[in-house]
Design a protein around this nucleic acid. Structure first.
Length: 261
DNA sequence: ATGGCGTACACCGTACGA
């Protein structure tokens, strides 16, 4: 059973690339971030024609998330963090059924945070607090759970191309990293780090300064699996190829494979 | 060096991302 996450940075622009990617990588479920589309503009028919059920939670211009699934999307679809007031469309959750049975899938676009000390940073911290509180309940209700998306947090220095330059900067602050560790402490595991990985593995490269060609990036897109799913994780990879497309997203897809064992 | 690039919206510049 394969699951994937991709920050597409505008689904209106990236839809053809998404459809190409899905044709080459027939995943069981996928979450998207930064669709940047209100729900009335969402390309539901095109995605259904590609063989996926889809749920979405969007807004005009900014943010926006979607959940694609080969099988029907079970009930208890959640849009945004329950009991957390938020006018930004950043989270979608549902239960997907694949070869491994039912898995609770949460797709999230974590706030950027702009800069430590800013209002947007405070918003990010409050959002992370709310996510943590809700996840505790969600994990109790759904032990087989995957949280994936654009976390906008580089968990460790090895997730940063230049840790000295990025020290204390947004995505790399102690506060953000403590929040990431708090998520792990709930009983979640960074699927990518369950395996030996190539050094200098990133999921995002700045559009500027030839960052991709120089492989200067950050690993900020993650797939966390619950204790119950951890024994099933067979592989986790970042697919750099779409970053080489014309008009690429600045993020790469991340894929996890869950085996039956 | 707060630049660089890309997207959206609006209107030919500004906000935002990471």
């Amino acid at each position: 059973m394969k699951l994937a996450t991709w920050n597409v940075n505008s689904l209106a622009v990236r839809l053809p690339q998404l459809l190409d990617w899905l044709a080459a990588h027939p995943v069981d479920a996928m979450v998207l971030q930064e669709t940047k589309l209100s729900d009335d503009k969402f390309p539901q028919a095109e995605i259904e024609a590609a063989g996926y059920h889809v749920a979405f939670h969007g807004q005009k211009t900014y943010n926006g998330v979607a959940l694609l699934s080969r099988g029907t999307l079970a009930e208890r679809l959640v849009k945004n963090i329950p009991n957390h007031d938020d006018d930004q469309a950043r989270l979608i959750a549902g239960t997907v059924t694949g070869p491994l049975g039912a898995v609770r899938v949460i797709g999230a676009y974590f706030p950027n945070g702009q800069a430590p000390g800013s209002e947007k940073f405070a918003y990010k911290m409050a959002w992370l607090d709310a996510l943590q509180g809700w996840l505790r309940e969600e994990l109790a209700a759904h032990p087989r759970l995957v949280l994936m998306g654009d976390f906008n947090i580089a968990p460790e220095d090895r997730d940063v191309h230049d840790p000295v330059a990025w020290a204390g900067q947004i995505h790399c602050t102690d506060e953000e990293r403590a929040h990431f560790r708090a998520l792990l402490a709930l009983g979640l595991h960074d699927a990518f780090r369950l395996f030996e990985q190539p050094p200098r593995s990133w999921s995002w490269w700045d559009y500027r300064n030839l960052a991709f060609r120089k492989n200067q990036g950050l690993r900020i897109d993650h797939i966390l699996v619950s204790d119950a799913l951890k024994p099933h994780v067979a592989a986790c990879t970042i697919d750099k190829l779409p970053r080489k497309n014309e008009r690429p997203s600045d993020h790469a897809p991340v894929v996890v494979e869950l085996a039956d064992r």
